[in-house]
């Protein structure tokens, strides 16, 4: 589904990613772990098309297409979803308005007619129930005045409704208490499917107690220094990042 080859990225002429290689197949969950400043967030931002990053080399191929060539909204319509570490508050734009605009953009992109108003409401309300959210959230402005947990849950709600193929979760566990973490994890687990892949970018192992990854990669100094199975995360938790960083050196 996603094939990253020797990707190098600069921010303000400073090289942040120094040759990333990653193969992600449909149905898989990959965890990308690493200490602060290792380039984790840069990787998720570059994949979703955020400005301010210069790709200096390498490639990212998504479902056979050059991902890095696409505008951010095209990537999103093609099924790439970035769950933000800090979801942005958008006063004056209601959740339901954004959800409908997003869903219809995807349908239009795939040559489908706009979603029927009743079907849309039924779909949205089903997902709201699934994530144990209050229906009133739909009519509130996007993320405005939401608690940290509510914002993250809102990201999962969008994910559930837009049904992306590749979900990039940027530090989804940051700022979540244990209850919110459980609800968010259950939401993600309910979305697991053979057609869908997840990239979980995280600093801590605790999220992986709830969402079990197929593969774990350790990112340090802009490179993947170690890859392994789910138990690699536990080992990291025990020994700390210095263990892999030293091994690399």
């Amino acid at each position: 589904m996603l094939s990253i080859k020797n990707l190098t990225v600069n921010v303000n002429d400073k090289q942040i990613l120094k040759g990333i290689n990653l193969e992600i197949k449909a149905g898989e969950i990959h965890a990308i772990m690493g200490p602060n400043g290792s380039g984790k967030s840069t990787l998720s931002h570059v994949l979703s098309g955020k400005g301010g990053y210069t790709v200096t080399g390498g490639s990212a191929t998504y479902q056979g297409k050059d991902l890095l060539e696409m505008a951010p909204e095209i990537r999103a319509r093609e099924g790439v979803f970035l769950a933000f570490q800090y979801p942005v508050e958008i006063p004056g734009v209601s959740n339901i308005y954004l959800l409908k605009a997003a869903l219809n953009s995807i349908r239009k992109h795939h040559g489908q007619p706009e979603v029927d108003a009743m079907d849309f409401l039924t779909l949205v309300k089903d997902k709201v129930r699934l994530l144990e959210m209050d229906e009133k959230f739909l009519y509130r402005a996007v993320n405005e005045g939401f608690s940290g947990g509510e914002k993250k849950r809102n990201e999962i709600l969008q994910m559930a409704i837009l049904e992306p193929r590749l979900c990039i979760m940027d530090e989804t566990d940051s700022g979540l208490d244990i209850d919110a973490l459980k609800i968010v994890s259950e939401g993600v687990n309910s979305l697991r499917s053979p057609e869908r892949a997840f990239v979980m970018v995280t600093h801590y192992q605790r999220l992986l107690d709830y969402i079990k990854p197929d593969k774990v990669h350790v990112l340090a100094h802009g490179q993947i220094v170690k890859s392994g199975g789910a138990d690699l995360a536990l080992e990291l938790e025990e020994k700390g990042y210095s263990w892999v960083e030293e091994a690399e050196a």
């Binding site: 400005g51 979803f81 004056g92 605009a101 953009s105």
Partner: peptide, 26 residues
């Protein structure tokens, strides 16, 4: 706000529509 524009783009909305939405919301 460029952050808001990117957030909307990452939710499938093209840049021009995003700008229009944000201006309207303002």
């Amino acid at each position: 706000d460029e952050k808001s524009i990117f957030y909307l783009q990452s939710r499938c909305v093209d840049e021009e529509t995003a700008r229009n939405m944000l201006t309207f919301a303002f």
